[in-house]
Each structure stands twice: as C-alpha cells, then as structure tokens.
Simulated assay, not measured.
Amino acid sequence: MGRFGAVWKRALSTKAAGGISSAVDSIILRSLKEHYLEASRMTPPPKVNPPAPFKIMPGALEKQQGPVLRRSYKDEEISISVMRLANILPSGAGDDDEDADDGINQLFLHVDVSKPGEDDALHFLCGLYPDAVGIHSVCLRPKVMSPGSLRKYSGRVFQELDEKIRYGFHEFIEERGVNEALFPFLQAWLYVKDHRSIMHWFKSVGTFLSHHQPSS
C-alpha cells in the first residue's frame, strides 16, 4: 500500500470511527440481549437439598470462591468447596465427547477439616462422581491463607501412601459425610451458579456498552 496509502486509510478510519463504533456496539448489544433472553428461558434443575446435616453457606452463590457447604462433626468444622473438571483442565483439554461427559459427571471438592485452637486444617482434594468419591491429595494448610502458605510441605502423593493409610483416610472423610450423596446437590448448585454468572455477565457487559456510546 505504501506510506501515503497507510496514512490515507488511517485518516478515513478516524473519520468514520464514531459511526463504525456505534454500529459495532449496537450489534453487540443486540446479540447480548438475544442471548440474555435465551438464557432466561432455560429451565432450572429441580431443587435439591444437601444431605443433612450439611448446610449451605450464606451468600455462596454470589461469591467467586469459597465454601459451599458446612457442617459440625463432634468438635470439628467440615467445609466443602466445589468446582468442575473444566475449571482445572488447561484450556483446550478435554474437548472430545468422552472428556466432555467427564466434565459434567466429575466434580472436584476441597474439603477442610478444622479443630478449635489449631492454626492448620486438614485439607483434602477429592474427585466426586455420581457413584463414588476419590481422594487426590491430603495435606495440612493454614485456616487463613496468606502469601507463601502453600509452600509448606504438602505430603506424599496420595497413591504412593501405604494402602492402610489410604483406606483410613477414605473412612475418615466418609465418617464426616463426604461421599457420593453430595453429588446431586453440588451438580445442581453449580448449574444454578453458572447460570447466574452468565446472566450477570450478559447484563453487566450490556450495561457498560449502553452507557459508553460515543457522542455524535
């Protein structure tokens, strides 16, 4: 194009920028509205209550992270956070149909068991399925996380532990109610949370664009 052509094209682009920007904003706003309305018509799953005596943490749906369920066991506090397989796999991984089904039917739990007067909690990372629960790792970590907290020794790889120890930890979490009975509630809860998040995204992005239309 040459130097003059580039300058000429830039000048035309600058002159038309306001009109083009306005048109692009209108296209995006229209698409956002269509998707928002489509999402609003989606049928939510049947309401499922968590297995007793677990209780839903107040405000858990509005928070990006944090415990979803909590219960007391003797003098202990048991708290559970949940995420999908898709939130752990690298971008682009698990795109085939079989992995996609696993993403729906496999959840990851962060289970913290804390005792009064102790600075650390026993932390389990577990895979939760419709018919089973498996432990991926066990470690002690501070109740209140701070920079450098995760640098502490996290223990051996769980599958390398003695079979009796592995069996004992499975019995430990089972006794505290961490089992496959949690799956129906947590799966439905994540659906509702994801739905709320995407609805909020459509609405907030649309509001931003409508409030920042270029002046004529």
Rank of each mutant, 00 (worst) to 15 (best):
K164A: 15
P50M: 06
Q187G: 00
H136F: 13
P130D: 09
S79W: 04
F208S: 00
A188D: 12
A11D: 10
Y129L: 13
K55M: 08
H35Y: 12
W201H: 15
R196M: 13
E38M: 00
I165M: 10
V7K: 15
E77A: 10
L61F: 07
P147F: 10
I20C: 06
V133H: 00
G18E: 08
G134T: 11
K15D: 02
F4M: 10
L209C: 01
K15I: 13
A132N: 15
T43E: 12
S79H: 03
Q159I: 08
T14I: 12
K9G: 06
I56A: 09
G148I: 15
S13E: 15
S210M: 10
F108Q: 08
V48L: 04
F172C: 10
W201K: 11
A188N: 14
L140F: 14
A60R: 01
P51C: 08
R41T: 13
F54A: 01
L128V: 04
I198M: 01
M1E: 06
L128Y: 02
S216W: 05
V205P: 01
D120E: 14
Y129V: 01
P67A: 15
N179K: 11
M42R: 13
I27D: 03
E62K: 07
G177A: 11
L186V: 05
G59K: 06
G134Y: 06
F172T: 04
S13V: 02
M1H: 02
P184Q: 07
G148Y: 11
G59L: 06
P45M: 08
R3H: 15
T43D: 04
P46A: 11
R84E: 12
L107K: 05
G117A: 09
R70D: 01
V138E: 03
G103N: 07
I165L: 13
F208D: 01
M83T: 15
K63I: 00
S154R: 13
S91N: 12
L12S: 10
P45T: 05
K9W: 09
G94H: 06
G2W: 07
R156P: 04
G155A: 05
C139S: 15
W201Y: 14
G148F: 14
L61C: 04
G92N: 12
S21F: 04
V138I: 08
D131I: 04
S22V: 04
H212C: 02
G155C: 03
G19Y: 11
M145K: 08
A17F: 12
G94F: 04
W8P: 00
H136T: 08
N105C: 08
F208L: 07
V205C: 03
P130H: 10
S215E: 11
H136N: 11
R141S: 12
F108I: 15
S81V: 01
F202D: 01
A6N: 14
R176K: 15
V205Q: 01
K9M: 12
G148T: 13
S79E: 15
L37G: 00
M83N: 07
S154H: 11
V157S: 09
K115G: 03
L69Y: 02
